[in-house]
Every structure is written in C-alpha cells, then in structure tokens.
C-alpha cells in the first residue's frame, strides 16, 4: 500500500451515546488484527485532549448532551466529528423513543456521517479517512500563530 495516502495518523476518541453496542464493538474491531488501523498509527485514546477525531456512536439524550459537548470542547483545534451508525446520524430505529433527542448534529457540528446498523468496520474506516481530508482543510483555514501570540 502506498503510505503517502495517509497524510496524518489521527488519534481517535470514541464516545458511546445511546448506542446498542453494535457500532461500538465495530469501532473496536477496526483496531484489532483483521482491520488493524493501528498499523497506520491510528490510536484509540481515552483523553479528549490528545484526540483529533471524535467518533460518536448512538444518538444523544438529556443526560449525555453535556458529556458530548464537554468532550468536543476539550478537543484541540483542528478537530473533526464522525457520527458512526444510523442512530448517531438521525436516531435511527430509536428516533421515536421518548428519551432520544435525535442525531449527534443536534448538539455538535458533525463532519462525516457513516451509515449502517451496525456500521461495518470498512465504512467506519472510510469515514475516518474522509475526516482526515476535512481535518487538513480545517488546518489550512486556521490562522497561523506564533507561540505566545494571542
């Protein structure tokens, strides 16, 4: 494989909204030997301050809206958000449940939507690769600052 394709090895932060676990285990499956994205330096980190891409599975509800917002705010710029699975996109099969507020884009801006119930690891990886381009664009758009400058 031509490694020039990989412009950056993003670190991923995964948060489970109200997902049924299906997408979560597929996100983890991306990191394990069959798909193994770790060989490109993509690591699932637990710390939002180290993360470039936020993967959210499942929709949002009253109780986790503050958590999602806080995680997003703690991530350094430039950052991208990938909504994994149909629940994170629109609420999916649970859209009509009383405790589901809807897709993740109700709370934070989403850059890439990955469809599927449960989303397949291939499409999750594809979503992250798309997010890489968005990250690069966001980085270009950021004003250049010197250290200590405000």
């Amino acid at each position: 494989m031509n490694l020039n394709v990989v412009k950056k090895s993003p670190w991923i932060l995964h948060y489970d909204g109200t997902s049924c676990n299906g997408c979560d285990i597929e996100v983890l499956a991306c990191l394990t030997p069959l798909y193994d994205v770790e060989r490109f330096g993509i690591i699932n980190t637990g710390n939002p301050k180290h993360a470039d891409i936020l993967l959210i599975t499942g929709s949002v509800n009253e109780q986790n809206i503050p958590v999602v917002k806080q995680l997003y705010e703690q991530m350094p710029e430039p950052k991208a958000v990938v909504a994994v699975g149909i629940c994170a996109t629109s609420g999916g099969i649970f859209a009509e449940c009383y405790n589901v507020a809807g897709g993740v884009d109700k709370v934070i801006p989403v850059d890439v939507y990955v469809p599927g119930c449960a989303a397949r690891p291939e499409s999750i990886i594809d979503g992250v690769v798309k997010a890489l381009d968005i990250l690069a664009e966001k980085k270009k758009a950021m004003p250049k600052k010197r250290i200590g400058e405000k």
């Binding site: 489970d16 109200t18 997902s19 499942g58 929709s59 109780q63 986790n64 449940c97 009383y98 405790n99």
Partner: peptide
C-alpha cells in the same frame, strides 16, 4: 446510570 437510556420498552406502543 442512565446515559444510554432510550426508552425502547415504550416503543412497543408504536
């Protein structure tokens, strides 16, 4: 607990 509560037992009405 309650971060993942969706209320899908109620969905049986719909």
């Amino acid at each position: 607990i309650g971060y993942i509560h969706r209320g899908l037992e109620k969905l049986v009405e719909k």
